[in-house]
């Protein structure tokens, strides 16, 4: 009957949820009910830790689903035109790759930060950065990703990556950056 399918999904979701619990597999030795202490924080007895799966490594030795993986193999940022929030074909292509990557790493949640160059006033740029972050997020959601996996934040002109007052720097600063939470 049909009701079985939702149950299976629920079970899968529940298992999925387990995977997101901190596991610290790397520091666990043996399987007895000893507790492992790291940095003065006591962990649950190992017998309670169900997920003993080691993180898969992506090609090149970076952990799959990590920020390094996203930056190295996908591209964490897209760029915008002056005063613009529209996504160029380059930007869309990067976001499509990000969407694919997020589907491959279903436990990853991200924050998309929107930024502006220095050629706007502070509050206007905060509003503009918010629109850029949202434009990138909306595209990821349109590609089928769960909205709850993607937060947005705006930094306006507060966090440039190139401080020079030249077009080359401005075009790098007008960006949205996707960061693994």
């Amino acid at each position: 009957m049909d009701w079985k399918i939702p149950t299976i999904i629920l079970v899968a979701l529940a298992l999925g949820a387990c995977e997101t619990t901190p596991d610290n597999v790397g520091s666990v030795k043996g399987s007895g009910s000893i507790s492992v202490k790291t940095a003065a924080t006591s962990l649950a007895p190992v017998s309670v830790i169900k997920n003993r799966k080691l993180a898969k490594l992506a090609p090149g030795g970076v952990a799959a689903g990590s920020q390094e993986d996203l930056v190295t193999n996908i591209g964490d940022r897209v760029f915008f035109g002056l005063d613009s929030v529209s996504l160029s074909s380059d930007a869309r292509s990067t976001l499509e790759k990000q969407a694919q990557w997020l589907r491959k790493n279903p436990n990853v949640t991200v924050t998309v930060a929107g930024h502006a160059d220095e050629r706007g006033t502070r509050e206007y740029n905060l509003a503009l950065g918010e629109r850029r972050a949202t434009a990138a997020r909306d595209y990821l959601v349109a590609l089928g990703l769960d909205q709850n996996r993607i937060k947005t934040i705006s930094y306006g002109k507060e966090r440039p990556i190139d401080a020079r007052s030249v077009e080359d720097a401005w075009s790098k600063n007008r960006r949205s950056v996707t960061t693994v939470d």
Binding site: E123, L126, A127, E130, R131, A133, T134, A135, R137, D138, T152, S154
Partner: peptide, 9 residues
């Protein structure tokens, strides 16, 4: 103040 809702202030 301004408030952004779905990106719009």
């Amino acid at each position: 103040m301004s408030m952004a809702q779905n990106g719009n202030s």
